[in-house]
Design a protein around this nucleic acid. Structure first.
Lengths: 163, 163
DNA sequence: CTCATGTCAGGTTGACTGACATTG
DNA sequence: CCAATGTCAGTCGACCTGACATGA
């Protein structure tokens, strides 16, 4: 019997960190497992950001990278892998002969639909599991948390102490 | 003006993914920035899991690794770096001469307190920013999401379709 | 010429697995 | 001998920066 249980929930703040941290990998991990189990075993977690940001009628690599918040070099590699797997295709940009655009193939659109369907099922079930609040409220609360955390130099209570 | 804005929020499900994903790095990133700015510039994000799981009176490396959900080799490296920085110390395990324990030094305890203080300030401010719900409710909702996502083979709606 | 696009090469971080010495 | 602890070495995934060719 190993004493693996949390040390002692030393305070609510640490618990907040654990839960918020945990939520992330959980959701995208579940989508990934679903897609891999239903016919796309070579997908990797990083690929999700491509499908989340590509437009059906084509998107430039640089735009994809900006939307995903990453370098165009990193996005370029992800796209190359998905082209190889047959989910994306590149075609010349009609407006700019320097660049090309990326769009999902028919197979890619099927994949996107499967992911969306799964996410919608998760959301519906999550909604049903909440008694006194809605998913929309939870998401809005998380956005509020992000605003607090991103504000420099930190939450008001700390600013007061420092200043 | 680059068209960096989200493609079009294709559906609520994708928005859910974005928000839940975003919340994670945001919170631990903010703690890290705070600690680095207030005297511990050499901390890296991976070090947080050590402080979150170490007991004041000492914890074995293997136990630390289990609590953090990672391999003991990886945890061993994190601990070594924090020992080098003076935040942790190792001492012989009184009950088992094969192993040693890890505990925070006085400096380490100060660091832990600073982190906790910051997190409590964030939590208080987050609580104040929420009108119709509490932080506790949001955390409970995230735990519910995790339960849905971790259950195999997926949410009920998909299981129904597959079966 | 400059600016945007995309590729190539190499580096960093945070994890992993395998092999091993030590000791109960 | 077996199991647990911890170290050493090597690998990987997901990103980064720098340098560069190409074309508007």
């Amino acid at each position: 019997m190993t004493d693996t249980a949390a040390p002692d929930p030393r305070d609510d703040a640490a618990e907040m960190t654990r839960v918020v941290k945990g939520a992330r990998g959980t959701l995208s991990g579940a989508v990934l497992r679903h897609l891999r189990a239903s016919g796309s075993p070579a997908l990797r977690s990083a690929h999700q950001q491509v499908f989340e940001n590509v437009d059906l009628d084509g998107t430039r690599l640089t735009t994809l990278a900006e939307r995903a918040g990453m370098s165009h070099q990193a996005m370029g590699e992800l796209v190359a892998e998905l082209v190889e797997q047959g989910y994306l295709e590149r075609f010349p940009d009609p407006d700019d002969r320097r660049s090309r655009r990326v769009r999902p193939t028919a197979e890619g659109r099927v994949l996107i639909d499967r992911g969306r369907e799964y996410l919608e099922a998760v959301r519906e079930e999550w909604e049903r599991s909440l008694s006194d609040l809605t998913v929309g409220q939870v998401l809005e609360a998380l956005r509020a948390l992000a605003r607090i955390c991103e504000r420099e130099p930190g939450p008001e209570a700390i600013r007061r102490r420092d200043g």
